[in-house]
Design a protein around this nucleic acid. Structure first.
Lengths: 210, 210
DNA sequence: TGGATAGTTGACTATTTGGTCTAGTCAACG
DNA sequence: CGTTGACTAGACCAAATAGTCAACTATCCA
């Protein structure tokens, strides 16, 4: 019983949007409340601090957005290198679309937030959550890489190392796209990943439409 | 004539250190003054805002640290792929050393700052400076890549694209090292760069000492 | 030596921010 | 209908922060 509410979710969405559009340090609790259309009292009813909200928002994003999307793309029913190429091609599409809407390439909020908070002692909780999300994504990469190794479509090597390298490449190119405000650098991602993984033939996908 | 001072430089150094150790948004002008051992009044005597200081500090870092170091490593007297491998191997050494000293891998301040400020309208000046520094670094990469192409040690391709890809890889792996607080991921960087560039043989260097 | 220039200081103000608290609103249930 | 429990509102307080200023100090040159 009692009153019902979605202020909870509105706050998480607003926080994530603002962090993405600006940065964690640049936004205040008041900003988040304003964007969410929620009063300060309600904020503190649900969350005890900005960092607690950020952690909850990240988990929500994973469950509502990232996981479903990755489950679809990294389906074991698809050839492993095609999974990876499809995933990477979708990044260009996504960032280009964001640039259309926002006028700015925003990159990956997990990456930006991670780099910003990971060394800050007051925000260990956020840093830990970020590392958790990185590890979850890595499992998809690693699984596809193991399958590719099994079918012999990439050169031998430790799947963990290959996944780390690919994750680094992806995050780096995404960050560059954000900093340069240019989605075009993402175009090369599928081919670059094939090189990093040591693919024997540069498996084709429907490339991102021009 | 008049009183002399290095408060100027002390402020720039302090700002860069703090930005590196924490983040741009997490530090205040008071923090910077405290670290530099300078009073607030002196801050505003030299700089009009945190972002103006940041821009000056970045330029100083380039002139005092980055440029001399890169000039040495990217000397045309050295084989082009060796330049690149040496540069990347030095990154592991550098970050490992920082972890020894600070207890934390700090990555690249230009990268972290760039990702944090580039979308913020109040900090366009910082974002522009960051892009300028990225462009300067890229020139070293591109030049080495062109030389490698000329000697036939890498597969054909646009040097600009190759430089962009390599820069993305470097920044991505560096960011991962920071977020995971683990310099070991940097170990693979020289070999990964060779793959990205399409090196015909994985040119050897003195690898970073264990 | 003394005046002019360059830099220093820290107290002060105004504003922003995080965080609290109480009075109130809304939905369900008995 | 009225009570209970979940949530809302926003005024309010205290701390932190940006930015100002007038008095002070060091250095150089004439």
């Amino acid at each position: 019983m009692g009153r019902t509410s979605d202020a909870n979710e509105r706050l998480m969405d607003a926080a994530l949007d603002l962090i993405w559009e600006e940065s964690y340090g640049a936004i205040t609790i008041d900003d988040i409340c304003k964007r969410a259309g929620v009063a300060k009292g309600s904020f503190y009813y649900f969350f005890s601090s900005k960092s607690e909200l950020a952690v909850a928002a990240l988990e929500r994003m994973w469950l509502e957005v990232s996981k479903p999307k990755m489950d679809g793309i990294f389906s074991p029913s698809v050839e492993p290198l095609i999974r990876i190429r499809t995933y990477l091609a979708s990044m260009y599409d996504f960032q280009a679309e964001i640039k259309q809407k926002h006028g700015k390439v925003l990159g990956c909020p997990v990456m930006s937030l991670g780099s910003e908070t990971c060394t800050c002692t007051d925000e260990q909780a956020v840093g830990a959550k970020i590392r958790e999300l990185f590890a979850r994504k890595r499992r998809y990469y690693e699984s596809a890489i193991r399958d590719a190794l099994a079918e012999g479509s990439i050169e031998p090597g430790d799947p963990g190392d290959k996944a780390t390298a690919m994750a680094g490449l992806i995050d780096g190119i995404l960050s560059q796209a954000r900093i340069l405000n240019d989605p075009e650098v993402l175009r090369a991602l599928p081919d670059l990943a094939m090189r990093i993984l040591g693919a024997k033939s540069p498996a084709q996908t429907t490339t991102a439409k021009a």
